[in-house]
Design a protein around this nucleic acid. Structure first.
Lengths: 229, 229
DNA sequence: CCAAAAGTGTTTTTGCTACACCCATGA
DNA sequence: TCATGGGTGTAGCAAAAACACTTTTGG
């Protein structure tokens, strides 16, 4: 039989975007206590009849209006006193979205005073244990980017190699060598060169590329397959 | 204000051990419905007033009698229908312990009919979504072993290089070259050669080594530090 | 003396690092 | 014509992979 004790649980999302050459995170300002007016990660409670992945997608949609987003669970935070009003366990997800400067986000929730894209190295003190959650998400994507092509989720479909390098540099927080970066990126065929080039720029126009997921999946499958012995 | 809906949640543990050259997992046979008599991962509900890490340690202790064990959270499973009796979200941990063939485990819980160490490639169908949980844990430790010295958690304090190689081969599920393995393991100073050797074996006695955590921590710290640019 | 595992080096290949100049474009 | 970022190759080094025989021990 199921026990009598129950807990509340929630989802918190670390939503990454890339804009103006910087890695950013979507923060919201809370409208209600506890932590009224504090900055926090977008998050909300999970309904009794929805799965947690589902809930994460719903919450992401409510805060950004976006669907079909790269969204991945990375850790669950369950200290007894992490929420001042009672026991709340939270499952943390990170998401990567393409910020388009045109359309602003319309958080579809009354709990939010405002939202903004905060550069990752300027994050203020956050409500609850959200600073910890954010730190853990950064650690995770730094490791993840070395074996999984998450960088492309932050870029438009067509991008230049310099843009791609900027994403890697922002996530890894270090400068990379341009020639070595290009050599490596182009060596395995996961990028497809397009006929199109930039235009209207006051310097040599860069070639656009796109991510070739088909080729990537082949390589990845191979990586997962063990050799005969 | 906190919402009215609440859920139950639990911890499930994938407890790895290494014995007779094989990687094994501790399974228990359930004593009660649902899934009465089915094999399952050790797990139990989290109390209202305990943190989840705490809860994982308690549950691990109840099933093995062991404390101070390598125990790490790896994923949370929250499908609505994963438990037939109601909404139960489970936080999954994996643990690594040294199986000593002498002392048997004494599960300190009435919910268990029996327990046994099951080789990872002979796992039967498991209760709930435990097969999925187990698969995910394997994926995790396979990746983890390439950058974190978790293999030592499975071995006694003193071990031979062949034993160590066996652990790597069992986790990675492939054969490794003996000379290259030794070269690599001995190249970075994280193993300390002992004066002691095997005895009573009908072949050349192997030298014992132990893991030098001090040296490892130095290397690891260095790895986390970013270079000047 | 045999069976069984311990232990040991070298060569080849591959991937990573470091490094500097010319090109195309719009203003 | 100038400022700006786009684009390119090579050499040296280090790590990984491939590969087979001798040594020690107890029975």
């Amino acid at each position: 039989m199921l026990p009598k004790f129950e807990s509340i649980f929630s989802i918190d999302c670390v939503i990454f975007g890339f804009d103006e050459g910087a890695l950013k995170v979507l923060l919201i300002q809370r409208n209600d206590p506890p932590f009224e007016n504090w900055w926090a990660l977008p998050g909300y409670f999970v309904e009794k009849n929805e799965g947690i992945q589902e809930a994460a997608e719903r919450i992401l949609f409510n805060f950004t209006g976006l669907t079909d987003i790269f969204l991945e669970q990375f850790y669950t935070f369950g200290d007894v006193d992490r929420h001042p009003q009672g026991r709340v366990i939270t499952v943390a997800y990170y998401a990567m979205i393409r910020i388009s400067s045109k359309d602003n986000l319309h958080p579809n929730t009354p709990f939010v005073k405002k939202a903004f894209w905060c550069p990752v190295n300027e994050i203020p003190a956050l409500a609850f244990d959200h600073s910890l959650i954010f730190e853990k998400s950064l650690q995770r994507i730094r490791r993840k980017i070395s074996y999984d092509p998450i960088a492309f989720e932050l870029l438009p479909e067509k991008f230049t190699l310099t843009q791609l390098q900027n994403v890697y540099e922002a996530i890894l927080n270090k400068k990379l060598d341009k020639r070595n970066f290009r050599k490596k990126m182009l060596s395995n065929g996961i990028l497809k060169e397009l006929d199109e080039k930039q235009h209207g720029v006051a310097f040599r126009a860069a070639t656009f590329y796109k991510f070739d997921r088909r080729t990537y999946n082949k390589l990845f499958k191979k990586e997962l397959t063990f050799s005969k012995e």
